[in-house]
């Protein structure tokens, strides 16, 4: 994947976040159980927050602060994939979300490594770290909610 400018790269990132937000919103609408719909609405809100942060960068108000590498608990690495379905429960929703965040992290990391422009490299690195933070939050939630006795 190649980007001609930093703005192109940022617009790509916004698109990815919009897709994720849209996906979670549609999933929320499909849920049979109201409490699960609320959970996916919250996930969508998280993605909206990411999108706002990237837009801030375009507007010259960078809200990303360089951060040390986020530790990966690898909670989801060996879990089987979960297909989204209307009768998903909270455990399945978290597995799905952890894996989605991991995929986003991998994408931004790959883009960062492939970037020749240093500003673009730094930007994708920061986006990757944001996704890693996001994933870690889901991992901790999973760890506490479903692995308390494990």
């Amino acid at each position: 994947m190649h980007f001609d400018s930093l703005v192109d790269a940022l617009e790509f990132a916004i698109e990815k976040e919009e897709e994720a937000e849209q996906f979670y919103t549609e999933l929320a609408e499909k849920m049979e159980r109201p409490h699960m719909a609320r959970i996916f609405e919250n996930f969508a809100e998280e993605e909206r927050g990411h999108r706002r942060m990237i837009k801030d960068v375009i507007m010259g108000r960078p809200s990303f602060v360089p951060q040390p590498r986020v530790a990966d608990l690898q909670v989801s690495d060996h879990l089987m994939d979960v297909a989204p379905s209307p009768d998903m429960d909270y455990q399945q929703a978290l597995i799905f979300a952890m894996k989605a965040e991991k995929a986003a992290y991998a994408l931004y990391t790959q883009l960062s490594e492939a970037s020749e422009d240093s500003a673009m490299r730094d930007l994708f690195h920061l986006l990757a770290q944001e996704e890693a933070k996001h994933k870690r939050r889901f991992e901790i939630e999973y760890d506490e909610q479903f692995s308390g006795e494990n």
């Binding site: 159980r33 109201p34 409490h35 959970i39 429960d89 909270y90 455990q91 909610q145």
Partner: peptide, 9 residues
């Protein structure tokens, strides 16, 4: 219907 549930059901 109408019974409010938490995250884990």
């Amino acid at each position: 219907p109408g019974l409010k549930l938490g995250k884990k059901g």
